[in-house]
Design a protein around this nucleic acid. Structure first.
Length: 629
RNA sequence: GCCGGUGUAGCUCAGUGGCAGAGCAGCUGAUUCGUAAUCAGCAGGUCGGGGGUUCAAGUCCCCCCGCCGGCUCCA
């Protein structure tokens, strides 16, 4: 065993028996020579074993998988005509897909839950059986479970394993818990449609999602986290904080930025521009539409059409609304001869693009049909590629960290089956991306074959405070557009050469990034981003004049201030300001008026001592400069 | 797009074929108050849109639109 302990037993002894003598109380399965097996697995020779405790990642996966079987059993009991298909454990729970055309209702979910509780109470033992393939097919044919038959037909092995609990039997690799009674805490969460094997031309199945945990406390905690996620939902906060809206009258996936949202966006954009100029970029602007020919030259009409809107006709010429900014930047490049001395050229644009997304995939600000990319294109010589990638990485990390994101999932995607460009180019570009990542000591995962057809790429998913990943930044090498447009530069040798082009977006789109920011901060933006940084609260009408003077001073110091002089009690005003998540309240009453000071209340620290307005202003300026949370 | 759910006042939500409701927000008035909700009154609706069944439709049926969950986790 991994802890070095060992023991000798009679041949045929099961792991459960070994476990009973020397193992963990909470063991649910084991690994023998690296293979996962049930506790009922008999040992016949000397091997290395390790027992898997319930409270491990592997243990929890097994728990959830077994729970999905119990659910399938309950569904079969209650809805005998439902066809079971697959039911794996997933990241935070499990699901099971059934072919059941009438569909399940929420009441059904309750019934299924109750039945599951009975099955768990019965503590049925879960037994593994191995059958020859043909026999297993016959068995499931007899049961009328055609999806299981289809699954077995895809298994090349001579034998397949089945798991039986009570009268329920399922095709499964295992391992599983020894008995259903080991399930202590589970919850069915939602019903959804899902295509058989994820393909649209296949029948739509009914998927039931659920989750399970070793203890009730852990389950409760998880459900609390789900509530927390709901409370942070950017769509809800967007309305409550009056940041943005998406309305029927404008159309699905089209965003209206309200003044407070726009304020934040302007701060983000200003910061972004400053940092880009500082990093050696130039800003460009391009129109929203262009002649269809341009999209033909760029190849978008061939490979991107399904995301593009139909053209409009102007003076008998067809124009297309842009799904990307790159062709325009290429045209700027092409507008005159370029010398190797000019490279690298870095052009950035907050370019608004429009893409057709299927109605079902739209989601608040996270997936929309019109959005603004923080786009840039870099044209460089091959010998500059790696350096440029490094610079982009540095800028990306700097900017994302400024917004409080410090954890990432990074993926390096390599050449897919369908590609353009030479193998040499692919290899050197992929190398450049890899080296840049490694030199910056960024750990990444390889995503083989997942590159775009025109070049390899690095994708960076930021993780918010709840650890959820969001695809934002992307850095893509492009061999295609330079070739299609035939762009060149005059080299040192006086000859024409083709530059390498890099597309990159750091925040991705302002819409999605804003959505992520809202959820990351739960709407409580740090001072430098807060649309309203402070609000002056007058305690009585007597204090309004003084309150106005304070408000004036704050505003003149460049602080975004509001005032609340309503005929309301102070606690009511404080409550309203708290709900609006305003970072500082400035309370003025008779006492402050006499001393000429203010009493600030900070969102994070509560009441602060009475202080001079100037001191509050410099405290706030400092906090803004540090972009502190 | 597809499956399921859902759409009632600005928001959250009740309303199972018979007079469209509540709380919060809003407005008006009173209260002048010291760190998360003072009290009272008033107003607010094409029940998502269109069609149908019925003496009668928010409620039942059909079509359309939007939104929500999912369709990526592969025995």
């Amino acid at each position: 065993m991994p802890d070095g302990s060992s023991g000798s037993f009679d041949p045929g002894v099961t792991l459960a028996e070994i476990n009973k003598e020397i193992g963990l109380k909470e063991a649910v399965a084991a690994s023998v020579n690296g293979n996962l097996v049930d506790l009922s697995y008999p040992l016949n020779e000397d091997t290395e074993i390790s027992l898997i405790a319930l409270e491990t990642d592997e243990g929890i996966r097994i728990l959830r998988h077994s729970t999905s079987h119990v659910m399938a059993q309950a569904v079969k009991d209650l809805f005998p005509e439902a066809q079971p298909t697959i039911g794996p454990s997933i990241e935070e729970g499990f699901y099971y897909d059934f072919d059941y055309p009438p569909g399940f209702s929420n009441e059904d979910l309750e019934k299924i839950t109750d039945r599951m509780k009975e099955i768990i109470k019965d503590n049925l033992s879960i037994q593994r059986e191995v059958l020859p393939r043909e026999e297993a097919i016959k068995l499931f044919e007899k049961k009328g479970e055609k999806y299981k038959v289809e699954l077995i037909e895809d298994i090349p092995d001579k034998e397949v394993s089945l798991y039986r609990q009570g009268d329920f039997i399922d095709l499964c690799q295992g391992p599983h818990l020894p008995s259903t009674g080991r399930i202590k805490a589970f919850e069915l969460l939602s019903i959804a449609g899902a295509y058989w094997r994820g393909r649209e031309d296949n029948p739509m199945l009914q998927r039931i999602y659920g989750t399970a945990f070793p203890t009730r406390e852990q389950l409760k905690e998880h459900l609390k986290k789900l509530e927390e996620i709901k409370k942070r939902d950017h769509r809800r906060l967007g309305r409550e904080l009056d940041l943005f809206s998406i309305q029927d009258e404008t159309g699905a996936g089209l965003v209206l930025w309200h003044p407070k949202g726009a304020r934040i966006r302007n701060i983000i954009e200003q910061f972004w521009r400053d940092e880009h100029y500082r990093a050696g970029y130039e800003m460009v602007f391009s129109p929203h539409i262009a002649r269809l020919d341009l999209w033909n030259t760029s190849g978008h009409l061939d490979f991107y059409q399904e995301n593009m809107y139909s053209p409009m006709e102007i003076d008998e010429v067809k124009y297309e609304i842009k799904p990307m900014n790159c062709p325009f930047h290429i045209l700027i490049y092409q507008s005159r001869l370029r010398s190797y001395r000019e490279l690298p050229i870095r052009w950035a644009e907050l370019g608004t693009v429009y893409r057709y997304e299927r109605s079902g995939v739209l989601h608040g600000l996270m997936r929309v049909r019109g959005f603004t990319q923080d786009d840039a294109h870099i044209y460089c010589r091959p010998d500059q590629l790696k350096d440029e990638i490094t610079k982009v990485l540095n800028l990306t990390l700097f900017i994302l960290e400024s917004f409080g994101f410090e954890q990432y999932d990074v993926y390096l995607s390599t050449r897919p089956d369908k590609y353009v460009g030479t193998l040499d180019n692919w290899e050197s570009a992929t190398d450049a991306l890899r080296t840049a990542l490694e030199e910056r000591e960024i750990s990444y995962e390889l995503d083989p074959g997942q590159g775009v057809f025109y070049g390899p790429k690095i994708d960076l998913k930021i993780k918010d405070v709840l650890g959820r990943p969001w695809q934002c930044a992307t850095i893509q090498v492009d061999f295609n557009l330079p070739e299609r447009f035939g762009i060149t530069y005059r080299g040192e040798d006086g000859k024409e050469h083709q530059p390498i082009m890099i597309h990159r977006a750091l925040m991705g789109s302002l819409e999605r990034f804003f959505g992520v920011l809202i959820e990351h901060y739960a709407g409580a933006f740090p001072l430098w981003l807060a649309p309203v940084q402070t609000i002056v609260l007058a305690i009585t009408d007597r204090n309004i004049d003084y309150g106005n003077a304070v408000y004036q001073k704050l505003t003149e110091s460049g602080i975004r201030a509001e005032k609340d002089f309503r005929k309301q009690t102070l606690p009511a005003k404080i409550r309203d300001a708290e709900i609006q998540k305003i970072p500082y309240m400035v309370i003025v009453g008779d006492k402050e008026e006499r001393s000429g000071m203010v009493s600030p209340r900070s969102r994070s620290e509560g009441n602060l001592k009475e202080m001079k307005i100037e001191d509050l202003v410099s405290r706030m300026h400092e906090e803004v400069a540090q972009k502190r949370r």
